[in-house]
Amino acid sequence: MSRDALVFYSPVDDPVAWREALTAELPDLDFRVDPEVGDPADIRYALVWVPPKGFFARFPNLQLVTNLGAGVDALVRRDDLVPVKFSRLNDPGMVAMMTSYVVFAVTRYARDIPVFERAKRRGEWDYVHPRALSDIKVAVLGLGELGGPAARTLAAMGFTVTGWSRSKKDIEGVSSETGRDGLERVLAGNEIIVSLLPLTPESRGILGARELALMPKGAKFVNASRGAVVDEAALIAALRSGHVGEATLDVFETEPLPPGHPFWTLDNVLITPHLASITVPKLAARDVAESIRRVRQGLAPLHEVDPGRGY
């Protein structure tokens, strides 16, 4: 007899925590951790993060794929998936973690912390007079489920914030720009640029040499979205020349970032290993369970992804 089973795969998430959280919500769910999947025909649902090539081809009755994160670009381009429903996680814990990362990165630059870090290594007292936060112009590229709250929080802290997105957004304290002209204005008019763009065919490589050159000399760049939205070679050149003064990078074209990559040697780059926002099973399991309940009833899951748009 066929069973209603879910397969779990992630190289970084804890399957025990997810099993406990999800079966508390859905006691009848058969939770299986790859590679111990039993009969592949039982698998109706997949809860995954960066599964290997060919992963989904084993499961002929798959109905729903839920991504263990907000970015689903790696899933919508695969060739081993039959038509299924896609959903992404959007839990309060993930939003709070991303907001905290962006606030940290922006505040670090706003308060000149890299200057003091370097001064400490030299053993020197290097005073830089603080500036009012309202004098510091910050741009957030991407005002979606993660970018919107981050921009709103920065504005509430007192920064002067502009957002750029596919469509106009109404966020308290945040100016909203759209379109190519809007992107160019945003890049030219802000000293700290934060990318929270989803990776889509339109956003891939959207920040190239021409776009980086629009930024004010010495601008600070924070990327917590996807590495491929930026031309890495162009960014390296801009960082070496000082046109981009500093960067905080959580994401890269190749992950883990390979040994010997130029980013490792640049003193003006802070590297974190793709952890700006992670999912908290206890908080996210409710949404995953509700999506499964909806698919069982023939309805769309929560936070459904449109593969054509890529988000």
Score class of each variant (00 low, 15 high):
residue 4 D to E: 15
residue 4 D to S: 10
residue 5 A to D: 03
residue 11 P to Q: 10
residue 12 V to G: 03
residue 12 V to P: 03
residue 15 P to I: 06
residue 18 W to M: 00
residue 20 E to I: 07
residue 22 L to S: 09
residue 23 T to Q: 13
residue 24 A to V: 03
residue 28 D to I: 08
residue 30 D to A: 04
residue 31 F to L: 11
residue 31 F to I: 06
residue 36 E to W: 08
residue 40 P to I: 05
residue 45 Y to E: 06
residue 46 A to C: 11
residue 46 A to E: 07
residue 47 L to S: 01
residue 47 L to P: 01
residue 49 W to Q: 03
residue 52 P to W: 12
residue 55 F to A: 08
residue 59 F to L: 12
residue 59 F to P: 04
residue 60 P to S: 04
residue 63 Q to Y: 07
residue 66 T to G: 13
residue 68 L to Q: 08
residue 71 G to E: 05
residue 81 L to R: 02
residue 82 V to D: 14
residue 84 V to I: 15
residue 88 R to A: 12
residue 89 L to A: 10
residue 89 L to N: 12
residue 92 P to T: 08
residue 93 G to N: 02
residue 94 M to G: 05
residue 94 M to L: 15
residue 94 M to T: 13
residue 98 M to Y: 06
residue 101 Y to C: 05
residue 101 Y to G: 00
residue 104 F to I: 01
residue 106 V to C: 09
residue 107 T to I: 07
residue 108 R to P: 02
residue 109 Y to P: 00
residue 109 Y to T: 01
residue 122 R to F: 11
residue 125 W to Q: 07
residue 128 V to T: 14
residue 129 H to V: 14
residue 129 H to P: 06
residue 130 P to L: 07
residue 131 R to N: 11
residue 133 L to K: 12
residue 136 I to P: 05
residue 136 I to Q: 15
residue 141 L to Y: 11
residue 141 L to Q: 08
residue 145 E to D: 13
residue 153 T to G: 04
residue 156 A to T: 13
residue 159 F to Q: 13
residue 167 S to W: 09
residue 167 S to H: 15
residue 169 K to N: 12
residue 172 E to R: 14
residue 172 E to I: 09
residue 175 S to C: 06
residue 177 E to D: 09
residue 179 G to T: 14
residue 179 G to R: 15
residue 180 R to H: 14
residue 180 R to S: 15
residue 182 G to A: 14
residue 184 E to F: 10
residue 185 R to I: 11
residue 187 L to V: 12
residue 188 A to G: 15
residue 189 G to D: 11
residue 191 E to D: 13
residue 191 E to Q: 15
residue 191 E to I: 08
residue 200 T to Y: 05
residue 204 R to D: 06
residue 206 I to L: 15
residue 211 E to R: 12
residue 212 L to V: 07
residue 214 L to V: 09
residue 216 P to H: 11
residue 217 K to Q: 15
residue 223 N to L: 03
residue 223 N to Q: 05
residue 223 N to A: 03
residue 224 A to H: 04
residue 227 G to P: 10
residue 229 V to W: 08
residue 229 V to P: 07
residue 229 V to A: 05
residue 230 V to L: 10
residue 233 A to Y: 01
residue 240 R to T: 13
residue 243 H to A: 04
residue 244 V to K: 01
residue 245 G to C: 01
residue 250 D to H: 10
residue 251 V to M: 01
residue 260 G to P: 02
residue 260 G to Q: 03
residue 265 T to D: 14
residue 266 L to H: 01
residue 267 D to R: 06
residue 267 D to I: 01
residue 268 N to G: 01
residue 269 V to T: 01
residue 270 L to M: 11
residue 272 T to K: 02
residue 274 H to P: 09
residue 284 A to W: 00
residue 284 A to S: 11
residue 286 R to N: 00
residue 286 R to G: 06
residue 287 D to N: 04
residue 290 E to Q: 04
residue 292 I to K: 00
residue 293 R to E: 06
residue 296 R to M: 10
residue 302 L to A: 02
residue 304 E to I: 05
residue 305 V to I: 13
residue 307 P to I: 00
